[in-house]
Nucleic acid binder design. Sequence first.
DNA 1: AGACATAACAAAAACGTTTTTGGCGAGAGG
DNA 2: CCTCTCGCCAAAAACGTTTTTGTTATGTCT
Lengths: 342, 342
Amino acid sequence: MAATIRDVAKAAGVTIGTVSRALNNYEDVNIHTRERIQRVARELGYRPNQMARCLSSKHMKRIALILSGFLEDTMLNDFETMLMKGIYQFASEHDIDIAMYVINSTTQLEKSYEQLCYEYNIAGAILFGLKTTDPYCEALPVSSRPCVTIDTELSGEHISNVTLDDVAAFDELTQYLIDRGHRNIVLVHGRKNAMVSMERLAGAYQAFERNGLKLTHDNIIYTNFHREEALSGVNEYFKTHSPDSVTAFLCMSDMLAIGTIEALKAMGRRVPEDYSVVGYDGLEVTNYTDPKITTVDQNIKQKGYEAARLLCDMLNGVRPAQKLVLPHTLVERGSVKDLAQK
Amino acid sequence: MAATIRDVAKAAGVTIGTVSRALNNYEDVNIHTRERIQRVARELGYRPNQMARCLSSKHMKRIALILSGFLEDTMLNDFETMLMKGIYQFASEHDIDIAMYVINSTTQLEKSYEQLCYEYNIAGAILFGLKTTDPYCEALPVSSRPCVTIDTELSGEHISNVTLDDVAAFDELTQYLIDRGHRNIVLVHGRKNAMVSMERLAGAYQAFERNGLKLTHDNIIYTNFHREEALSGVNEYFKTHSPDSVTAFLCMSDMLAIGTIEALKAMGRRVPEDYSVVGYDGLEVTNYTDPKITTVDQNIKQKGYEAARLLCDMLNGVRPAQKLVLPHTLVERGSVKDLAQK
DNA sequence: AGACATAACAAAAACGTTTTTGGCGAGAGG
DNA sequence: CCTCTCGCCAAAAACGTTTTTGTTATGTCT
C-alpha cells in the first residue's frame, strides 16, 4: 500500500498538519524540519491523494474540459483531438491536471452546469462544441466559476471566449479567390442555424459586396457540413447550371471541400485546372488529398493552449475575463487556379 | 451553493447515513423513508460529490484511460480519438465516468504506475500507446489492479489485452495483393523495433513464403512510420531500381501509403494503373485520398469499446483476465489493380 | 414470560488531505 | 520583571461521502 501523509508524519516525527504545510512550502515551518519532511516523503514515495486534496481544500480544485457532441459522428475528429493536444500541452508544461467530461444536449438537461461542477469539484472549465441553443449557454453567464468557451460567443463576468475572427477570415478567403480572377463563385454552405455558418456567410457576403459581386440563393449549395451533402449538392447544382457558369467553389469547411472535389472529379473535371476549390478549418487531411486543399487554418491546437492558459490566469486572478481572438492563417496549397495569370 | 447530503438529511428528517443508504438502494431502510428521501433529494437537486465518494468508499473507485505518447506528433490523431470515442461510448451507455491521463516515457519514470493509481484512486485502467521498453510494462503485470492494454501484449494475473491478429491481418493483406497477380512487391516498413512492425513483417513474410516469393532487404523501404519518409524512401528506391521492377507497394500503415502514393504521383505515375498501393489501419483519411486506399480496418473504436467493457467486467468480477483478439476488416477501395484480370 | 431475532434508523468512524486554531518557548521592548 | 510578538509546531476541525457499529422498538418462538 502506498504511503499516506500519516506515514510521513510518523516517520518524520511530526504531525500531519506540519507535513502538509512543509510539502506545500508554507513559511511557518522551520527550514530543517521542512527539509527532513521532504526527504522522508521522497524516501517513502509519498504522493498526496488528489481526491482527498480537492475535497478538503478550498482552492485546490480542478479544471475541466467539457466537450459537447464528441460522440456524435461529425467526422471532424481532428478538431477535438487538436484541441485536446493544445490543452494537455499547456497542462503538462504547468503540471496541472485537467479532467475531461463528454456531454451532449440531452445530458445538459439532466445535469446542470453547476451540478456538474459541484459533483466533480470543478473550479473552472473550458467548453467546446456548445450549440447556441444548449442549456449550458444560459448557465455559464450566471455562474461564478470562471470558464472559457471555444468558438462560442458568450458574455458574462467570468466568461472568456477564444475564437477567431470568422467573418474576417472568410472574407479574406473569399477575397483570395476574387484576387485570382474568380467572379463566378459558388458558396458551399454549412448548417444553416449554426453560428459559424452565419459568420462565414457574412464574411463571404462582405467580400462579394466590396467587389461588386452578388451572392444569391442561386449560387449557394446548402448542406449540414457533411461531405456527402457537398458531393450530391454539387451534382444537383450542375443539373440546373451550365458547366462554365462557375469557376470556383468556396466551401465553409474542409470536409465540404473534400466532397466538392470528389464530385467534380467524378464528373471528369480537374481541380484546379477546371474548377478551383477552397476549404476552411485547416484539418490535417487537407494535406493528404489530391490536390492539397487551400484553406484557412484555424490553429485549433493553439486555441486549446491559449484557452487553458487563459483559464488558469483567470483562476489565479492575474487576468480578467476577455474575448481572445486568435490569428488565422490562410494556407496556400494547390486547389486554386489563378485566372488572372496568363 | 449546491445541496450536500446533510441538506437532504435535514430536509428529510433523517441522518446522513440513512440518506446515503437510501440513495444507494440498501435494503435496510424502510420503503416509505427511502422514497421520501429520494423525493427530497430530487427536489433539492442533490448530487453526491464524486471526490468525497471515492475517498470514503472502498469500491467506488474510478477507471482511467492512460494514454502514452499522446502529445508526441505522430500524425495519427485518428487513433486516439477513435479509441476515446469507443471508450466514452461505453462509458455513457453505462453511466460510468472515466478519467484520462496523458503520460509519456519520461513521466513514467517520475511517477510509478502504482503511485499514479493511488494518487487518483484508480481501480482499473485502460492503457494505450505503451512501448515495450516503457517502465509501466514491468509495473502492470505485478499490480493487483485490473487493467487492459490495447495493442500491447502483456501477461499477468490481472492484465487483459485487446489486440487484433496483426500477423494474420497483414498476411491477409499481402495475400490480397498476391491474389491479384502481384509478384514484385515492395514492403514499406514502419519503425524497426516496434512490436507492430515486427508482427506485420511476420505476416508479410509468412504470405511471401507460402507463395514462393522472397522478401529481402532489397525490397523493403524502412521508415519510422512518417509520411515524409515513405515519400523520400520511394524516391530513393527508384534511383537503384528500374520502374518495372515492382508492381505493388505494401505499406505498414495508412500514412505510409499516403506518402507512397504522393511520391508515385510526383513521379508522374498513376495509382492504381501503374502501381498498386495498400495501407493498414483503416484511418478515416483513406476515404478522402485519391484514389481511396485499400486497407485493413483495425476497428479501433470497437477496440476502445471492448476494452472498456472488459475492464468493467473484470472489476465486477464477472469476467477473468483474457486476451481478446478483435476481428479486422480488409476494406477494398480503389488503390489496387487486379493484374490477373485482363 | 423470557430470550432472542429483526427491522429501521441513529451515531460515529473512516477516507486523506488542507486549514484553522491553540499553545509553548524564546527573544524583544518597556 | 512583565508583557508582547513571533517562530514553530501540535491539535483539531473541516471537506462530503460510505460504512460500521449501536440502539430502540417490535415481533417471534419456546
